[in-house]
């Protein structure tokens, strides 16, 4: 229970931080144009304003044709990452469960598929 309480507290802290940053940021950016532009655009704007002599000497080979397409591709990146992460976490959870039940069943000889883990195994039952 304590474990879940701390997880919940951390999640709440993340949401709170996000909200505070967003509210403070909205106040901050009441100036001209878009709010919450990327820091990369902020930097390029600064360079263009202060170094008018500089022209970017290379253009992206492929550029998403609109903000919508771009955010879609970013979502794709996040989805690929989250999907892979979820798969890995699920697999590890299941692997641990099998390891445990294999250790529980002491009458049967261990058929551990990962002998490399054996060094750390003795503590898996106590």
């Amino acid at each position: 229970m304590r474990k879940h309480a701390s997880t919940l507290a951390i999640l709440l802290a993340i949401v709170a931080l996000f909200t505070v940053a967003m509210v403070l940021g909205t106040r901050q950016s009441t100036g001209d144009g878009e709010t919450f532009i990327g820091t990369d655009s902020a930097a390029t704007t600064h360079i263009e304003e202060n170094h008018p002599g500089y022209t970017p000497w290379f253009q992206p080979i492929f550029e998403p044709s609109s903000g919508e397409v771009e955010s879609g591709l970013f979502a794709l990146q996040a989805a690929l990452g989250a999907g892979a992460l979820g798969f890995v976490l699920g697999t590890m959870r299941e692997r641990r469960r099998q390891r445990r039940s294999a250790a529980d069943d002491s009458s049967r000889p261990l058929s551990d598929p990962e002998p490399a883990c054996d060094a750390a195994e003795p503590q898996s039952r106590g």
Binding site: F18, A21, I37, G38, A78, G81, G83, A84, V88
Partner: peptide, 25 residues
């Protein structure tokens, strides 16, 4: 598998743009 987790974690996090106190994200 853990290596995959580490790679996937950077992949997700660097795709998520968040607003910040400076008014940019």
């Amino acid at each position: 598998l853990l290596l995959g987790a580490a790679g996937a974690f950077t992949f997700v996090l660097s795709a998520i743009k968040l607003p910040s106190v400076t008014g940019s994200s």
